[in-house]
Design a binder for these strands. Structure first.
Lengths: 339, 339
DNA sequence: CTGAAAGCGCTTACAG
DNA sequence: CTGAAAGCGCTTACAG
């Protein structure tokens, strides 16, 4: 591994000049610059990132906090992979790498902050795991740029990215209403989560706006997982006056609901129309096709990357970013040509 | 941020001693050790990783190469998330972090190797993306410990982890045979991929072992995606003597095949039995439940972590690791109580 | 068991 | 536009 010193000697300059070529190229004489660059190429010189980080206190690495392991099973993000691709791509275009942070064995509450300090991470992206994690508090309270997905966090240099959940829910209700349904129920996510609460709010607002009576028994809480949608739908079918449409706050729950409807001998969309949320892959695959509000999966990653890089470089905190959730119409609210 | 020098001064020792407490604790006097440890705790001292890496040439970071971005869409790993959890967990238990490597903008063939050198990565894990990636060649040829998932790689310090694909395929055929099927077709993965080729080999071997005639028209190539399974199944149904059982080399293809069977007015498992491979989540959710060979998703991550850490610390190259693929029987090869 | 000293490979005022 | 020099925060023979 060639070092900056060897490269400098080979070019007959000081290592300061070589360093400038890589960090501030416009400041060095064009000819020497070219000489240095081509020599670097020839001998395979690569700047040592540890040394750079040590000297500059900036690592050009962003931490990813995604707190899940085999001991805490059950949580799967509906589109973690897409977020990660978006994040990785956007970050690497700006010259940043992603370091996956693991909660360390000792599990003290400032674990993540410690990892950030040890590695001189320039910022952090946090994927909500649906739980309250005390390790986040010290991090958020620090001066480290933090962007969170789907969950507002408090701190001097924090912001978040999320879908416009309330708006999406409103559109779901509007769409069901437009197809002629009048008894519209909802299966919510856990209302302690932000997306759960917001989607419920949107539902309630739009029901009111459309002049549809609010019937509390039409609101059933689920937990985003398939089986809760199944159970909730069975409960709804037991009602005196069952709904003719259901907005489920997540596609998995909607698919569970779909199964319950089918098992009850009813048909989707004829007897009951269904709208989900997320647009997971399965939504397009399960007959008769699930109408849903699409979350901008890659957009999450891209927006998070943009936000954290802004905070790193400009010392400003961008406002929370709300991503639109386009309605994708499939067979569960009307005929789908493919099925 | 307290430095080792301040901590040393506070404790009345040299920084060499402090360093030893963190790297070689047994070598320092118990009392001073305790003093240093407690003082470190009190003032919040954290060793600076960049400085350590610079001094030792070891970063305690492993690179993850997972070469996918939005410009190359289409590829999704069937259980990337599970692998990543397994990998992250196992690595962090040994004190390693995971750095996600991005192909850099310039895209030269030694991109990954360059990243490894710049960051002093101790090793690398590579998730097969189903394509041949020339960037891997220089890395594999180097002295950097590399473990690859699902694809053998050549190099002085390389090994790989994969499912026992041939054995799983054999078991699939055996199971179908045991349930009374005699005309057993297969929908293969791309045979240029290792898993695709191995699963086909297992199928052929077991067919021969069972004395079932080899009929070339019963072998149809797919690409692991759902639609290819659908198309392949339609082709199989057109045969003079259609199969009464199909082993699809991936669950997605099996689910596509399932749809084709249903659309043709036939029933699974009565008319045609189906076995998949992978045990993706959907396999349990799609009626009548898909019998499949389960890949040990977390095991991939754990085994990869173990292999790379062995190579890092012991300078030996562990042999390739073959993970077993237990048969999970569901409704597609017989009655499933849940449907 | 411990310390003084050199070294890891960069960057960055400072001076010219 | 460039160089000499100090500094970033550790580790590790070497000597005691």
């Amino acid at each position: 591994m060639a070092t900056i010193r060897e490269l400098a000697r080979l070019c007959g300059v000081s290592s300061a000049t070589v360093s400038r070529v890589f960090n501030n190229p416009e400041v060095v004489n064009a000819q020497t610059r070219e000489l240095i660059l081509s020599t670097a190429e020839r001998i395979g010189y690569l700047p040592n990132e540890s040394a750079r980080t040590l000297a500059t206190k900036r690592s050009r690495m962003v931490g990813l906090i995604w707190d899940t392991d085999h001991r805490r099973p059950g949580w799967r993000h509906p589109f973690f992979q897409e977020i990660l691709i978006g994040l990785k791509t956007a970050l690497s275009e700006r010259g940043y790498h992603l370091l996956m942070l693991a909660t360390s064995e000792d599990g003290t509450p400032d674990d993540f902050l410690r990892a950030v300090r040890r590695h001189n991470l320039d910022g952090v992206v946090f994927i909500d795991n649906g739980r309250d994690d005390p390790s986040l508090q010290p991090l958020a309270a620090s001066e480290v740029p933090c962007v969170s997905l789907d969950r507002p966090i408090q701190g001097p240099r924090t912001t978040y990215v999320t879908s416009d959940n309330a708006d999406g829910a409103r559109e779901a209700v509007r769409h069901l209403h437009a197809t002629g349904r009048r008894v519209i129920a909802t299966i919510t996510g856990p209302t302690r989560t932000r997306p759960g609460a917001e989607r419920l709010r949107g539902y309630l607002e739009e029901m009111a706006a459309l002049g549809l009576a609010h019937r509390p028994e039409l609101v059933v809480e689920g937990d985003f997982y398939l089986s809760s949608g199944y159970a909730a739908m069975r409960a709804l079918l037991e009602l005196e006056e069952p709904p003719d449409a259901v907005f489920a706050a997540g596609d998995e729950m909607a698919i569970g609901a779909l199964r319950a409807v089918t098992e009850a001998g009813l048909k989707v969309p004829e007897d009951i129309a269904l709208v989900g949320f997320d647009d997971i892959e399965l939504a397009a695959l399960v007959p008769p096709g699930l109408t849903t509000l699409a979350q901008d999966k890659a957009g999450f990653g891209t927006a998070a990357a943009a936000a954290v890089i802004t905070m790193i470089n400009e010392d400003v905190t961008p406002p929370p970013r709300l991503l639109p959730t386009p309605l994708v119409v499939r067979g569960s609210t009307g005929p789908d040509p493919r099925f």
